[in-house]
């Protein structure tokens, strides 16, 4: 099975796995995305940077089909998803971890972990998850929302690693967590990259972003306005400071 999974991954390397063009999105009457364009290649970790309200979260939600209305083009592994329902987008191989983590209070830790259905082979096994996140095994029977913030974040990411999704959308996994936990999350993202997952990461904290990402897109007013490769980050600091106001 591992063979079967790696072959197409190798073949696709270099070409875009996710290709977004002219993405517009609305929540009711409010127009939140104004023509977002970006590409993510197989195996990359790419961040969306930008100030509050720039449209980072909306971009992830629009990719998942969780906005009121959207137009443009979202091609994933060659398949157009702009008109698809969220469950079919998930089944195409994209998994989403929302900013508020979305841990279910009425489910225990194990039920939370096993909730997202497996959509393709190639995800982590339960044993691998427990090796990566030993806390989740210890607290298997606890109510999901009784975990600490860091543990909830781990759980929110762990449950989408099982499903066989190939592209993970992570919305600010470092938000509100203690520095030592943020480091753990960073290590975990590098680990999942190593395992061949592709990640689109929303971040406000670019110090954290630069420890995990290959490239950074900068968003402003519902558009992607710039792209910086991680190795050019130091040279582009002034520009980034202007964008992010830090």
């Amino acid at each position: 099975m591992a063979e079967a999974m790696t072959a197409p991954r190798m073949a696709a390397a270099g070409t875009a796995m996710l290709e977004i063009r002219g993405l517009e999105a609305w929540y009711g009457e409010s127009h939140v995305l104004h023509g977002v364009g970006l590409d993510i290649r197989q195996g990359e970790v790419v961040t969306l940077l930008g100030r509050n309200g720039a449209g980072k979260t909306s971009t992830l939600r629009a990719i998942m089909g969780l906005v009121g209305r959207r137009s443009g083009s979202i091609r994933f592994e060659g398949k157009e998803l702009i008109a698809a329902r969220p469950d079919l987008i998930a089944r195409a191989g994209i998994a989403y971890c929302p900013e508020e983590r979305g841990i279910f209070a009425s489910l225990d830790v194990t039920e939370n972990l096993l909730l997202p259905p497996v959509i393709a082979p190639g995800g982590l096994s339960l044993d691998e998850i427990y090796t990566l996140f030993p806390n989740l095994k210890e607290r298997a029977r606890s109510q999901g929302t009784k975990l600490s913030g860091g543990e909830q974040q781990m759980l929110a990411i762990a449950r989408i690693l099982r499903t066989g999704a190939r592209l993970l959308l992570l919305d600010e996994p470092s938000e509100g967590l203690a520095p030592v936990i943020v480091q753990q999350i960073g290590a975990m993202i590098r680990e999942i990259k190593q395992r061949g997952f592709t990640v689109l990461l929303v971040e406000q904290n670019f110090r954290f972003a630069q420890t995990v990402a290959d490239r950074h897109y900068v968003m402003e007013h519902g558009k992607v306005v710039d792209m910086v490769a991680n190795e050019d980050l130091a040279a582009s600091m002034d520009r980034l400071h202007d964008y992010l106001g830090v």
């Binding site: 998942m64 089909g65 969780l66 329902r85 969220p86 469950d87 987008i89 998930a90 089944r91 998994a95 989403y96 929302p98 979305g102 279910f104 209070a105 009425s106 489910l107 039920e111 096993l114 909730l115 997202p116 259905p117 959509i119 989408i160 499903t163």
Partner: peptide, 24 residues
């Protein structure tokens, strides 16, 4: 049951459950 856990989860956050690939 598993079906019950989908149900409980969908009561809390139907959109997220659908974004996991379940036909809500």
């Amino acid at each position: 049951t598993k079906v019950g856990s989908y149900l409980r989860a969908a009561v809390e956050r139907p959109q997220l459950v659908q974004a996991f690939g379940i036909n809500v």
